[in-house]
């Protein structure tokens, strides 16, 4: 069946099976910034924004996205540039596979939470797993982004 939604504010039309998940639909259409880490709702690498809120694209049926707005990192590039500079500055860059999903979650966090504590920031991001970094340097960069300390 045909599904029409908005990807980074541009219309996106796809022919999908009813049980296709958004992750597959996006990657089949060469939106390679969305990553397949586990395909079973457990790692956060596939995170996209649905109407501004982080969701797991591996667990969202494409048919349910009709008429909605999906955002990937390509749609928030100015903020990504700022966040990636901070990551670089803090030495947080490693393999990068978790970074696109994490960047979207961090972007949404900044807009959703008012004056979050360290604990609240971590709780919001706990579903974005990273195996490389040990989280410390990432956290420092994220805090600077969230609190506008550049």
């Amino acid at each position: 069946m045909q599904v029409k939604f908005f990807l980074n504010n541009r219309p996106f039309i796809a022919e999908v099976s009813p049980n296709d998940f958004l992750l597959k639909t996006l990657r089949d259409h060469h939106v390679t910034s969305v990553k397949n880490g586990c395909n079973e709702s457990s790692c956060g690498a596939c995170t996209v924004l649905l109407d501004g809120h982080p969701v797991l694209s591996c667990s969202l049926l494409t048919v349910r996205v009709e008429g909605r707005h999906i955002t990937t990192v390509e749609g928030i590039s100015e903020d990504v540039k700022i966040l990636s500079d901070l990551f670089s500055d803090e030495g947080a860059d490693q393999c990068g596979f978790c970074n696109t999903g994490l960047a979207l979650a961090v972007y949404a966090l900044k807009r959703e939470l008012k004056n979050p504590s360290d604990e609240e920031i971590k709780r919001y991001l706990v579903g974005n797993l990273c195996r490389c970094s040990g989280y410390q340097a990432q956290f420092k960069a994220i805090v600077r982004y969230v609190r506008n300390e550049q």
Binding site: K35, V73, S84, N99
Partner: peptide
């Protein structure tokens, strides 16, 4: 302190993997 070479491009979603 030196920024890593691939950090920005990867976070911006360029095909890389």
């Amino acid at each position: 302190k030196t920024p890593s070479l691939g950090g920005k491009g990867i976070m911006m979603g360029r095909p890389a993997f």
